[in-house]
Amino acid sequence: MTAETAVPPTAAYAADAVLTEVVGLLVEVVGDEILIATEIDRDSSFNEDLAVESIEFVALAEKLEARYGARVDFMAFLSEMEMDEILTMTVGTLVDYIAAQPAGEPGGEV
């Protein structure tokens, strides 16, 4: 058996880490009350399940850019979607997009 620490992070591991970070940044934007009422998972939709407002999603996108800026172009991601698609997006869709981007800057954690 290979030691776990010697195995490069798998895509699933990366997605889990990204999920944790996305949730953390979302809490920074909307407040931690969001954690009290419901569990946030990959299937949670920002609009319906989490009641994230359009303007809060703008703020979240900005925080994500600050965190992943060198490797993730969120404006390109968003600009390929209709507004309805953005509003019905699930946490998993966003996480998968981030996790699928090639690791860029040295020191990137994910």
Binding site: I55, A76, S79
Partner: peptide, 13 residues
Amino acid sequence: DNLSSLYYTLAPP
């Protein structure tokens, strides 16, 4: 209204 209506439509392109 707020900036999000323009942020999701006209601004990126």
